[in-house]
Design a protein around this nucleic acid. Sequence first.
DNA 1: GTTTGACTTAGAGTGCACTCAAACGTCTAC
DNA 2: GTAGACGTTTGAGTGCACTCTAAGTCAAAC
Lengths: 122, 122
Amino acid sequence: MYSISEIAKKVDISAHTLRYYEKEGIIDPIRNDHGVRQFDEQHLKWLQFVKKLRETQMPVSQIKEYTRLFLEGEHTANARLRLLEDHRQFIRDQIETLLGTDDMLSKKISTYKELMEKSLMK
Amino acid sequence: MYSISEIAKKVDISAHTLRYYEKEGIIDPIRNDHGVRQFDEQHLKWLQFVKKLRETQMPVSQIKEYTRLFLEGEHTANARLRLLEDHRQFIRDQIETLLGTDDMLSKKISTYKELMEKSLMK
DNA sequence: GTTTGACTTAGAGTGCACTCAAACGTCTAC
DNA sequence: GTAGACGTTTGAGTGCACTCTAAGTCAAAC
């Protein structure tokens, strides 16, 4: 069992943000008899998954929705699958955009370097 | 010469956002004798460049900084080069993250599909 | 036994990037 | 000559995702 600060460190998400995620219904830690949050390996895995979704710009609202469906049970598997597939498509589109801009930047960077060499030769 | 709404359409950035960019010093359209903004091909090209930077998450503040350096002249070429190289690195890191999550999602999606096939066979 | 430090809560504040509102000016078409 | 489409401005509002504050509880360390 981990305290909020321990798990915060492990997943590299601030304790503040974890409380915010709890308020949003994305996590539901166990509480001990003093009301202190306790996180287990399941929570850790879930948070690592959530983190990957956030790192790839899935909105918190969509993660909420996914969580809600998950908690609703088996019969929402189809809807969850669709959410994941949609996000994968978003990721792929994003990769395309990034590759395109990488390319443009590389060209621009080359031009800059050429220009600077020329001015050095003067 | 394009009006604000014409260029907004061309680059697919709202007129509102273009005015905001102007306030931030990212663009500096010409004004006619009635104070109406006029954009030319140079502005168009610049905005297309800015758009690519924004699409790849470069903060407006950094685009501002790049613009400022650009307007300062030749002697800032080195600083501008560094900005672009940093952003290219950011893009490459982002691509890595996206590829990793794409992979994870693909595995999860396969698992979902297998599960659903099994439940169909019951 | 008191201090330290980690935890709790509700609710307010922050920063970013827009996005809109209101009040007004100007051009063109009918 | 007036309606309507488009432009202008300043300043306020929005939505997202945190991020922090204040006031309090509790347990172990000194």
